[in-house]
Design a protein around this nucleic acid. Structure first.
Lengths: 123, 123, 123, 123
DNA sequence: GTGGTCTAGACCACC
DNA sequence: GTGGTCTAGACCACG
């Protein structure tokens, strides 16, 4: 369910975080589901346990998953979510950058919005 | 016209590149305009000339600016632009990631598209 | 395997780039082979790591090598190559210049083609 | 008869040198022909006289032209030419580099030789 | 004056 | 360990 690309310029742990979040919002992972252990996921992804551990820590910080000591790691209750204004602003900056990149390649505003809408619908 | 944040995790030279691209697509910089010299911009941004030079070289690779040896650096003819499929694909991946982030914070599809459309209009 | 000449007018990083490309097309470096680390090559060539890094970054831009963060640098899959028309045109201009130089020294067309064919065969 | 490109990465004076040599080997300029004065050529090319002067000095060093004090500058006797082994070797190095570049883009030996032969015939 | 290259030495994130 | 970024300061060719 998770695919990572060791050639990508993105850190492996970040790719894992992104992948799991995608699975959550797509509904493949639901509140209360048990996550694979750090070791098992490390083996299945062919990375070091350290890398998976870092990804889990990041996900826990973002309240996407919860670790219950001695039991395991579980997908958190999605009702915990809250809009983080600081983060929203950060994401808007990045979106703005992508728009600029696309405009620099000659795409029109409408073409860009079309691409984005299609992406939204595919998720 | 250019503002950089030395505390940001983004490389300084990349911030410069992004800033200049933004000025170009907003029309503040037009084809044929002379860019500030590497040294002058370095002083005005409080960075080393090397950092500005790296930004200029990256912009030249992307055909946003042109350098004329011994004379200076100029905004390139924007009609040279061509769509880079590989880059477009990569941008789409990043856009997808941002959408996932926003959805994880509880925003609906329509809210996300509204934010994006507004961003597009502001550029 | 790599030799550079600090007295040459050609930039050191460019000499490194050219040398590595030669090793690749001669088959001394094959897809997947690990490149020496930036620091190690810097020591063996008696240049700063920055210079080697610049060469590696240029090679990566040209898809000759790939870097995996935190691990190392590897020779890329050569099947990725694609003909760059703009670059081809520029190379033809340079070849034309060399032909003119040789003709100015009195060599005939046939002598020039013979020299060139021999060079092609030696690679 | 001479065209230079101020955007090119090649020095202007070098472009002038190359252009004049091309005219010589194509027969447009013959032994004994008078060259335009530095000032006139500077005006017609829209460069500073210094640049043209540097080009003429280089051409004189290569025995392509001769300056007769108080009279003017003339195309030299082509029988003066002699094969410069050192220069020939230098040119071969550059040719080798171009071949490597083309091979890196996936061209075969035969395709490269065909391109070269065609170039030779066009001069 | 311009940009291009190089060195020496530093700090950082990633694995 | 790896590569990526940045600074400070130097030298060079070009116009």
């Amino acid at each position: 369910m998770i695919k990572i690309d060791s050639r990508s310029s993105k850190p492996l742990y970040e790719q894992i975080v992104d992948n799991i979040k995608e699975n959550v919002i797509k509904g493949y992972l639901k509140s209360g589901d048990e996550m694979p252990s750090v070791r098992k996921m490390a083996i299945s992804l062919s990375v070091t346990p350290n890398t998976v551990s870092k990804a889990y820590q990041e996900l826990e910080r973002q309240k996407i998953i919860e670790t219950i000591r001695g039991k395991g790691t579980y997908v958190a209750d999605t009702s915990n979510i809250k809009v983080d204004d600081e983060k929203t602003e950060q994401i808007q900056k990045e979106l703005k950058k992508q728009i600029i990149e696309l405009k620099c390649m000659g795409l029109t505003k409408q073409e860009i919005i079309d691409i984005f809408t299609e992406l939204c619908n595919s998720l």
